[in-house]
């Protein structure tokens, strides 16, 4: 008995000796670091590659194997600016459709999010799940009838039409994100404001909105990003007047020949604002998309 005891405690001591502990932790840590570095590299390299391509000349582009180090030039951007009339128009389309979608979604979504966050009514749970569940329906199912009635109403190839579609697509996530952010504002603050003489609307305007503002801004950006990037509906529901940039970049494929410079240049223009937005909304995204709290 005693013998077994000493041997096991010796094994215990060996296993938990400071040196073993430290090496194991170091190995563990460096494994995690290598993994994260690889993942970071895999994330960045394609993005770098597109930006690099947009800064290459045709001669630098067609070298095989590809050049990783080269002297960058903004020639492609200047060339694009030279024939920029159509592109500028598409850029304006993209910006205005994105803005309109964000405004519509935030306005209606914050009403619903506030309702889910503050009021308890019969069917609350059912309705809040239903709205998230509509996001799992493939919107492609709606396309044929939607296209037919929108063309009857003259909404095909219009800013309003596309924005309305994006609003409907984004409302489910937006409502849930906004609900999560409103949940973060203590209801006691609103009550205090009302006791101090604010109306219900006044309490909402003076207390709730300022406190939930960062979250609302993050939601607006999140929605805007989706609208800015959306491809399928933009391809189907626009021809000329409301065509957005993702459709334009797709058109750099002409008869199976890709104009790589055009693609990379326009692609970089589409992507650049996202760098900024990713930094701004990452933290709020983590908070807003915690669906785990819905159990």
């Amino acid at each position: 008995m005693t013998c077994a005891d000493t041997s096991s405690s010796a094994a215990f001591a060996a296993k938990h000796s400071p040196i073993w502990y430290r090496t194991r932790r170091m190995l563990h840590r460096s494994f995690i670091n290598v993994f994260l570095l690889t993942a970071l590299a895999a994330t960045i390299i394609p993005i770098y590659w597109m930006i690099a391509t947009s800064l290459k000349t045709t001669a630098q582009m067609v070298v095989s194997p590809p050049l990783v180090v080269f002297s960058p030039t903004i020639e492609n951007y200047l060339a694009l600016a030279g024939r920029s009339r159509w592109l500028l128009r598409n850029l304006i389309n993209s910006v205005s459709i994105t803005a309109l979608t964000s405004v519509l979604t935030l306005f209606f979504g914050s009403m619903a999010g506030f309702s889910f966050s503050r009021y308890r009514f019969p069917g609350h749970r059912f309705l809040s799940f239903t709205i998230l569940w509509t996001r799992t329906l493939p919107p492609i199912v709606a396309i044929v009838p939607l296209f037919l009635w929108m063309s009857d109403m003259g909404l095909v190839d219009s800013h309003l039409g596309l924005s309305l579609i994006y609003t409907a697509l984004n409302l489910p996530f937006a409502v849930w994100m906004l609900k999560n952010f409103f949940d973060g504002v203590p209801i006691q603050l609103e009550e205090a404001a009302m006791i101090d003489g604010c109306s219900r609307i006044g309490a909402y305007r003076r207390v709730t909105i300022p406190l939930a503002a960062p979250g609302m801004a993050a939601t607006a950006i999140f929605v805007g990003v989706l609208a800015w990037n959306e491809f399928m509906f933009a391809l189907i529901f626009t021809n000329v007047r409301a065509k957005t940039l993702p459709v334009v970049v797709m058109e750099s494929i002409v008869e199976d020949k890709l104009y790589w410079m055009d693609m990379a240049t326009i692609g970089t223009i589409i992507m650049l604002p996202m760098f900024l937005f990713a930094v701004i909304i990452y933290r709020h995204l983590v908070k807003g998309l915690s669906f785990g709290a819905m159990k």
Partner: peptide, 30 residues
């Protein structure tokens, strides 16, 4: 690092498809 890891999800599918078309390209691809 969070925003960097988030970036691909914030790029338009059209741009992602074309970028990777270049990445997988036989002669020019990385």
């Amino acid at each position: 690092t969070g925003p960097i890891f988030t970036l691909p999800y914030m790029i338009s599918p059209a741009v992602v498809g074309l970028t990777w078309r270049l990445m997988w390209h036989y002669n020019l691809g990385l």
